[in-house]
Design a protein around this nucleic acid. Sequence first.
DNA 1: GGAATTTGACCGCC
DNA 2: GGCGGTCAAATTCC
Length: 258
Amino acid sequence: MESCQQKVMEKLLHGHGCASQLKLIMDHHAESDSSMEREDLAKSVLHCFSDALSILIDTNDHNKDDDKSNNSSPQDSSHVLESSRKPFHKRGRKTSMAESSDYRRHESPNPIYHDGFLWRKYGQKQIKESDHQRSYYKCAYTNDQKCEAKKQVQMIQNNPPLYSTTYFGRHTCQLHQAFETFPIDTSDLQDSRMIRFDNPDSSTHQHQNQIIHHKVEQMMPSEKAEEWSSPSEYMSSEVAYAVEAFGFNPARTSSDLS
DNA sequence: GGAATTTGACCGCC
DNA sequence: GGCGGTCAAATTCC
């Protein structure tokens, strides 16, 4: 647990440093002369937060029960709806996902794409009680590593846009080990925004990175994307919601994470 | 051509 | 019979 805290702190500090550099550049440089450097920094910031989130997600899964008692503050409840171990619908299979003992729900103006894991969409359904379709995702390592983690993403409100992301089960895949094996290298971020894979040389690695891009382009509401005038704005919003989704409070000290 | 996504069909529960 | 969840063939994308 201690090493996890250190890793998270290292990632966050690195991200903070990159963000500071980015702000410095944006404050003092003309728009055109350092766009590539800004882009690299922006990607680096996102990558750091993604790594930290992945570690926190794993840590949170193991400590979820403890967190429940500490997650009752009113301001948190507006966005992060932790599992209350009760179904949010009565119909459906007895073994339905919502009735499982391990799920978390999060609501935000944009769906969470970068939560540190690779997801594969396996279904989409028009839900009776909602005007919007619900998308079903499972961990891309479901078959390879018997990882049973799943998530559902559903738009629950149009104006302003509000998405509900519900996570089920725990990740048993070895993704985090891959994070530890390959340290951050911002030079190869052109095609990858966040996820590191077991074998960085494999064709699978390259293709999966493309998938992440595809998902972002496909799911990002165009009007929302236009609202972000810079990559850093887009990332901060995205990461912030992902952080909230897993109950991470940046104001906490490192000792609070244990 | 391979892999991921889409979408209609099917399953099991109520 | 209606519903949510999952499967799998068809389609799309790189």
